[in-house]
């Protein structure tokens, strides 16, 4: 049983093309963010930075078509104010297409 079409198996995505790749993405609640910079410090993909002074000091995601975010949610775990979380997982399409996945949910205690 093929979950990928032959065409998809043969196409390796061009890593920097947002048309074929969907990298992870974090959403930052700027109401809650106080710009402490913990998330920027630990981000493995160097996708976050802190900018601004005083009350306007907030975390931002770097402006890149395909950032190195892998939705690891380490930023969400370290954030004391719960201001940041990964929105969706990554999917690079073609050969690397994510299969049999659904939305992101926290652990469930059945």
């Amino acid at each position: 049983m093929f979950y990928l079409a032959i065409k998809e198996i043969l196409t390796i995505p061009t890593y920097n093309d947002p048309g074929t790749c969907r990298a992870g993405r974090v959403v930052i609640d700027h109401e809650r963010c106080n710009g402490c910079g913990d998330c920027a410090l630990i981000c493995p993909g160097a996708c976050l930075y802190v900018a601004g002074v005083g009350k306007d000091r907030k975390a931002y995601m770097i402006d890149k078509a395909v950032p190195d975010c892998m939705s690891c949610n380490d930023c969400a775990a370290i954030c004391k104010r719960g201001a940041i979380r990964a929105e969706h997982g990554y999917d690079f399409g073609g050969f690397y297409k994510a299969l049999h996945r659904a939305e992101m949910v926290p652990p469930r205690n059945f």
Binding site: N73, A76, I78, H100, V105, P106, P107
Partner: peptide, 15 residues
């Protein structure tokens, strides 16, 4: 670790 990096987070559901 620096700070408190541990905590439960959301992950994709798998079929």
């Amino acid at each position: 670790p620096v700070g408190r990096p541990d905590g439960m987070v959301a992950r994709e559901l798998h079929e």
